[in-house]
Design a protein around this nucleic acid. Structure first.
Lengths: 197, 197
DNA sequence: CGCGCATTTGATCGAAATCAATATTAGTGG
DNA sequence: CCACTAATATTGATTTCGATCAAATGCGCG
């Protein structure tokens, strides 16, 4: 009996085997391994050797980089449906990944992702990521704190609220949002309550 | 007689066919087309359909995006050896590309870049781009104006000064640097002369 | 309960935006 | 080759935003 099934996985549309089927999908499923982590654990550390991708099934993670001068910053958040490792495969992990809560993941070994049938899909996932970074970049350089935060929240809502609920929970701390947005925690807080009116 | 030869191209190490040889390289060369543009021309416009990559042989370009509210910003600069289109291929060009001076390019049609022998190379180019964006992102959120400008200049020097000269020319205007760094033109200017001492 | 951590809030300060005015450069046509 | 023009660069004065510092409040947990 197979513990894990991509066939029935609700996140398949955003995952690597989105369009895979038949033999290819079966082989893929067999090489994927599930993993579960509690809050505050490092899934990978910066400069760890890259061995495979991780697909987020539930929970969330932050990507943290330590800059040269000791400043460390949150450069992105990974939500369910996201794939970690898209910028790492050639060499090493460029950032650490830390869980923001209990998190379930699928580990996709590199050889499974590199199947020729999936090459196009992998490329398009990386491109999507690149485009998302472009958009995030504009928002971060051209908007002031309140609007910047608003843009962050809209993005988070879009990616976190899978059910069309009227509310959703943010898995990260305000200080982590602040680091991500390049603001002080105090400013972030003020912007937040300003938006709450 | 072949007008264009990747074999002898000094930029091949950073280009798509870096490690290609023999038959593959010959076929690649045959499908590439050269193109030359004067200053201030748009190579592609935002949302144009994507038909292929462009490798910069000489000159430079800026990548400009028009945000929703009319603000347009310079997202990146392309220097000789860079490849344009790494974030576009699935759909459309996410940004406009405008020459900053007379610029020579190689157009690489999509089918040529998608040759299976080059798949790995293409992926690693996209990853390099992604990593560069990560690094640029840290620098932009964690540094103040003078250091931010310094980081930009170091990057530009590294990518522009192919001959180990003691100086090099920046192909873009100060206002474009300002847009790229998310500063006012006045602040950029002040930071520049502060660095000049 | 009390400790540690996160959030909230206030007061102050500084960096950079903005506004505004010149200087410099480049480009154009006479 | 020289006005004339437009665009860019430079510089100063002022203001605004957000960082920083500091203190208080709230909260979860052993």
């Amino acid at each position: 009996m197979r513990i894990l099934s991509c066939r029935t996985c609700p996140r398949r549309p955003t995952c690597l085997p989105a369009y895979a089927s038949g033999e290819c999908l079966a082989a893929f499923e067999d090489s994927v391994r599930q993993r579960e982590l509690p809050e505050g654990r490092a899934l990978v550390h910066q400069d760890d050797p890259f061995l495979g991708y991780y697909a987020v099934r539930s929970g969330a993670l932050k990507a943290v980089v330590a800059a040269s001068d000791g400043i460390d910053g949150v450069i992105m958040f990974l939500y369910p449906g996201d794939i970690a490792g898209l910028g790492a495969m050639t060499h090493r992990w460029p950032k650490s990944l830390v869980t923001l809560g209990p998190t379930r993941l699928c580990w996709i070994p590199e050889h499974a992702a590199k199947r020729p049938e999936l090459a196009g899909r992998l490329t398009s996932l990386i491109e999507d990521r690149l485009q998302r970074m472009y958009r995030a970049r504009i928002m971060r350089t051209s908007l002031h704190s309140a609007k910047r935060l608003a843009a962050f929240l809209i993005d988070a809502a879009y990616r976190l609220a899978h059910a069309p609920e009227a509310w959703f929970e943010l898995p990260m701390l305000q200080r982590e949002i602040a680091s991500y947005l390049g603001l002080a925690t105090a400013s972030t807080n003020r912007a937040l309550r300003e938006l709450q009116q």
